[in-house]
Design a protein around this nucleic acid. Structure first.
Lengths: 201, 201, 201, 201
DNA sequence: GATGAATGAGTCTTCATTCAT
DNA sequence: GATGAATGAAGACTCATTCAT
């Protein structure tokens, strides 16, 4: 019984992993359900035992991966001793995820911007939660008095994330050699930190 | 004769404008050619007198709009007296374009990241040209000695653009009220400028 | 006035000639009216001043060419002194027409067999008239007593024409070198003549 | 398992049979895939599980039927004791096939001449194989000394087939009454045999 | 649960034909 | 008469989804 359950969960995961690969390669609309099935090693119809439809695969993918990403990022952030170190960690982890999970990252990149109605709500909710990790750090810095009070944490967190995401994208396109990911992370967080730091006079 | 030419060009433009609207609303893959035709007030077949196929509409859209955007941005930048002022102008114009041409901006947002093979080359070429506007300003600042030498202009230009693009996206999603576009432009360029400024001691 | 009429007729003919070329190359269904127009050096719409529709071009083509072919063949046959010589002449002219007018011949080859309802009647009428040239020669031979009475002139004329047509087709396909057209004409008419000749004992 | 396979093969065959009927009725270009599907009692999409596209239906039709025809003809020919008897058998079987399978015959008639590029090669290959059945008989006759040496077996085989094919076509058009098929077969093979026989003096 | 053959709705695209100039 | 831009009906083909086994 447990075994069956396990195998079932396994199949669910296998389909999702296959979908990540296929979606990343062709984009959502150019991916065929049958391709995912093939990649997952299951029959076409089996997909529909685990997911309501093609859209649902993408949604589930977000639901499960975003949650994992958020938790993992929160965990990583906590290791930072001060807001600035936390931001650096965020930048580093964010950029690194591109290397560790390029397919998933590729999907997020596009799909997060795709205005597919059906997703918007959910995706946004989770994405905002993700961004809150940043804005909370900024607020913390403002409370502690090391980050300028005038800066809107929401705007800045968006900007920070956008900057990182774009550089990550660039890294993929530039055949991954021209620039080192860690250095980029450092460079960007440095610029932001220096840019946000409260003047001490 | 001139009239005929005019009308022909007009139709080309009308189709492209219609496409911008329709693509922005539904995304490329959920848009039907017949919808575009309807929106443009022409017959379905007429589309194919001006464009090779559906893909070609999107490509043409980029070709024509990107060029326009780049020229207009270059023109705007020149008015800035120093690199910092130029960056501020860039930020302002970039964010504002979202307000002035939200549909086009929405398409660029997604499609620029879409890995649609057929586009990648062209889009990238033009996009890189666009980003060079930023990196040149940064280099200029480094030469003049007001921007830190250690910063990679290419990385930073990506980051700057990414930050702006994401904030612009946020502005659209947040029902355009919570935050003012000009203030955001100022905030982001300020952070970047302060973050990049060469230490004078 | 006469000039205009002449030019008009000229255009009619030019379109028909263009159609022969285009139809021969691509077949009726794969030929576009616009191709014919281009080949004829007229505008697409002009075609419809001279022909009711695409079908009508093909029909007119038959009407005009078949009549010409029939008359020319009749004229040629008359030069033969006896039925056998007439058959030889028929064979020779028939095969030669493939060389002189390969495009027209190619169209006849296919279209004569195409069961396009709209043509059947007309084509058949003219084709039967053409075949009658043969059957009359055979009847003549039977009356004169040099061709076996038992042979059905209608069947034999079909067979004779079919034999010639197929060999002509072969000649085209075999890159026109392997075999000489006149020799083939002689060979086939010889076989038929020897095969039909009344036994004299 | 066997049942499933059987049903699958059955569907392939059913589609092909339907195609024969539909193509014969309207010609290839005027036949709609949906018509074939309807006639076969399957959904439109099902066609594409068994055939690559519309063209492929026609090609498959040839591949499968021609092979069958060739084998069946070879089998029939062998029963003839001498070359002349074999030719008579050929004529008889050839004409009869028109009665037994008029739809297929109608398609062969037209399509064999249609210069559809995509077919030409294959069709020709198989058709030449078919004609070789005749030319071999003629060669055999020449070797045995009962058929004139001067006759080119290739030309004559074409002529023989062309003669038969045309008479068969005539039979269909003439509402199948005016003339008996067996008599026609006899008449034509008689003319050819007498025409080809070596003079014995 | 698993399969994959079958379905058929949905869309792009072509091209014969029209008609305003 | 001549033009050729515009039309829109028609049809091949795809692929998400279903369901009998």
């Amino acid at each position: 019984m447990g075994g069956l359950q396990a195998r079932t969960e396994d199949k669910h995961k296998r389909i999702l992993q296959a979908a990540i690969k296929v979606f990343a390669q062709n984009g959502f609309y150019n991916s065929k359900v049958s391709e995912i099935a093939k990649e997952a090693g299951v029959a076409d119809g089996t997909i529909y035992l685990y997911f309501k439809n093609k859209d649902d695969i993408l949604i589930s993918l977000f639901e499960e991966e975003m949650e994992r990403i958020i938790q993992s990022m929160k965990h990583e952030i906590e290791k930072g001793k001060d807001p600035f170190e936390k931001l650096k960690r965020f930048a580093f982890v964010q950029l690194n995820s591109k290397r560790e999970n390029p397919d998933l990252a590729a999907i997020m990149e596009v799909e997060l911007r795709q205005s597919s109605k059906f997703m918007k709500e959910y995706v946004n909710k989770k994405f905002i939660e993700y961004l809150k990790i940043i804005s909370r750090i900024i607020k913390e810095g403002q409370e502690v008095g090391i980050i300028k009070k005038g800066l809107d944490p929401i705007i800045i967190s968006r900007a920070f994330w956008g900057a990182l995401d774009e550089v990550a994208r660039f890294w993929v396109l530039s055949s991954k050699r021209r620039i080192s990911l860690p250095k980029s992370a450092e460079m960007i967080s440095d610029v932001f930190i220096r840019g946000m730091v409260e003047d001490t006079s």
